[in-house]
Amino acid sequence: MSSGVLFEFDNHIARVTLDRPKALNSIDPEMDAALFEAWAEINSNPDIWVAVLGATGEKAFCAGANVSGGTEGDGRRMALGGGLTGVGGPMLTLRKPLIAAVQGYAIGGGFELAMCADIIVAADNAQFGIPETKVGIIGEAGIMHRAIRQLPHHIAMALILTGERIDAQQAERYGLVNEVVPYEKLLETALSWADRIASASPLAVQAAKDAVLSRAGWPLDVALATRYEPIEAYAYSADRIEGRAAFADKRAARWSGR
């Protein structure tokens, strides 16, 4: 993996780590390319069932982007965060569950990257902010669109209009994060969430994520009437057979992800 991003996986859990602590883990084009490689590997590798996105150093998860919209090795435009945010280029859809482990500053593009996760665990020193209006810089407004969808309306508008930050405890109170823990327990807690997800059928988890997110902005009657290909495909999977057998035998299922 390229400089600035660490990647490893073990026991069906991938760990992606922003590793530029002296720059508050702000994302440059090289990191964007490395993140794209990580997401592509996670999507394509059937032995990876869940991913944890974290960062090195106590001071910051990510302080945004050095340059909006990095580039792949072949020169194509890429959205910030290796394509994950949809800001500055085409958006990449991560099919596997993603947990963000956030400490210190998560501001601007870093806040947006955290909001791309399915579950957010925050250290008690975390701060979330949208500084664009405060510093007089307004570009592509992806972070604002995400904030207004993931936070109560007036809380999101206050962040957007003032450029001020909220702390981890406020973020938990507003439903932005799932859990707040001491910094020393951040990675342990994020990996615990990953273990819990990995104990479920990986194909069922992926099918559920696809169904929920692909119709999140649609009326309920449309969502209910939609046919979801991953759910239909799951009916013919080895994991569905294993799930039924494990339930009948009253034992823990041995998932294969196939």
Rank of each mutant, 00 (worst) to 15 (best):
A168Y: 10
Q169N: 13
Q169R: 14
Q169F: 11
Q169H: 14
Q170D: 10
Q170E: 14
Q170M: 12
Q170S: 13
A171K: 02
A171I: 07
E172S: 12
R173Y: 08
R173I: 01
R173M: 10
Y174P: 07
L176W: 12
L176A: 10
L176T: 12
L176Y: 09
V177C: 13
V177P: 11
N178H: 15
N178Y: 07
N178S: 14
N178Q: 15
N178W: 07
E179P: 08
E179D: 08
E179V: 11
E179L: 15
V180H: 00
V181K: 06
V181C: 10
P182A: 05
Y183I: 10
Y183F: 09
Y183T: 12
Y183C: 09
Y183N: 11
Y183K: 04
E184N: 12
E184R: 14
K185M: 11
K185S: 14
K185P: 03
K185W: 06
L186D: 03
L186H: 09
L187D: 13
L187N: 13
L187P: 00
L187H: 10
E188D: 14
E188H: 11
T189P: 13
A190D: 11
L191G: 00
S192Q: 15
S192I: 09
S192V: 09
S192P: 02
W193S: 02
W193C: 07
W193V: 06
W193K: 07
A194R: 08
A194T: 10
D195C: 05
D195M: 04
D195T: 06
R196L: 10
R196E: 09
I197R: 01
I197T: 00
I197C: 01
I197E: 00
A198W: 01
A198R: 13
S199T: 14
S199L: 12
S199R: 15
A200K: 05
A200L: 11
A200S: 08
A200R: 05
A200W: 02
S201I: 07
P202Q: 03
L203R: 13
A204Y: 00
A204S: 04
A204E: 03
A204L: 02
V205T: 13
Q206I: 01
A207P: 04
A208K: 09
A208Q: 10
K209S: 01
K209Q: 02
A211P: 05
A211N: 04
V212P: 00
V212R: 01
V212F: 04
L213N: 09
L213W: 11
L213M: 10
S214T: 07
R215K: 11
R215W: 05
A216K: 13
G217L: 04
G217P: 02
G217M: 02
W218L: 12
W218T: 07
W218Q: 11
L220A: 12
